[in-house]
Design a protein around this nucleic acid. Structure first.
Lengths: 161, 161
DNA sequence: TATTGTTATACTCTATAACTATA
DNA sequence: TATAGTTATAGAGTATAACAATA
């Protein structure tokens, strides 16, 4: 059982009181994200995955046949930064890259059996990670948080539902 | 007037529908933070500041005389990563580093006049940045978002108020 | 002309170990 | 011994320009 030290708090000796410390909202996003990211990295390490390789693998497993550009769009990252991720997953035999016969520039990304199995196992660990990070929020609070984050990301467009 | 393209949305042609795309919660934090961070970087560029140099400068201006280790704690970053930030602010004449006579290992960080003035001007631009990023959230929603982020960061400890 | 994937590159942020000078 | 600041270093993520192959 790996030692997962969630929420590594910095030493409070001589710290500035929260009343005196006033930062802009984005900094609180950064601080929270750093904590989540650190815990997620520890969570994925036993599987040989990082946040981005895990994210890419799950999207490929859920959407077999998609292109790299679509994957980059889904993960909100630039296409050049996708290449190393795909290379790594492919080198480890977790995905296949089939040439799209209709458009020979593009690849159709497919999960391998090993990729699907690793993804399943990692998913269970990530579920526990999410329980650690967000478990104290009830369903309404958690939904409100995700909705607020989505509105920040999209500039509040897209709530037409 | 610099061109501030907030919320650079990725091309939606051939995109995966939101219904099909299911990522873990931390990834939505990352996406939202990236948007905020990109807008903040553009906002601070005219002042020659980045997120961390701006954050450090504001904390020093609000808490003159604090030590580097205290500053690192306030910004939730490691002490070694503080050095380059402090060097940059000092080289530009925005802060002073006075040796603490009581403890000659430590520095007392003080804002210079130029530092306070630059901070004031940057603060106004950051206010507008925050209005762009979070303005569509009402006071309750915004407070709930910050409270949720703080609880995630601290692991829900610290709500003893 | 435009797009897919790619290379090269640079910048930013984060984390750890080990050093120095003080305490 | 422990702490403040430092150096060196490595890893991870992000962004842009430019290219070849293909559409």
């Amino acid at each position: 059982m790996p030692e997962l030290s969630a929420h590594s708090d910095h030493d409070d000796i001589g710290a500035i009181s929260d009343a005196t410390l006033r930062l802009f909202a984005g900094y609180y996003m950064k601080r929270a994200f750093n904590v989540v990211q650190a815990d997620l990295s520890q969570t994925l390490r036993p599987f040989g995955l990082r946040m981005l390789t895990y994210s890419a693998l799950t999207v490929i497993a859920d959407n077999p046949g998609l292109r790299q550009a679509q994957l980059a769009g889904a993960l909100a990252m630039e296409r050049p930064n996708m290449v190393a991720i795909i290379d790594e997953l492919h080198r480890r035999g977790l995905i296949r890259r089939d040439r799209d016969p209709a458009d020979r520039r593009a690849y159709a990304l497919m999960p391998s059996l090993e990729g699907r199995q690793l993804c399943e196992r990692a998913n269970r660990a990530v579920k526990r990670h999410e329980a650690r990070m967000f478990g104290f929020l009830d369903e309404n609070e958690r939904a409100a948080l995700l909705r607020a984050l989505h509105r920040v990301e999209t500039g509040s467009r897209g709530e037409h539902e």
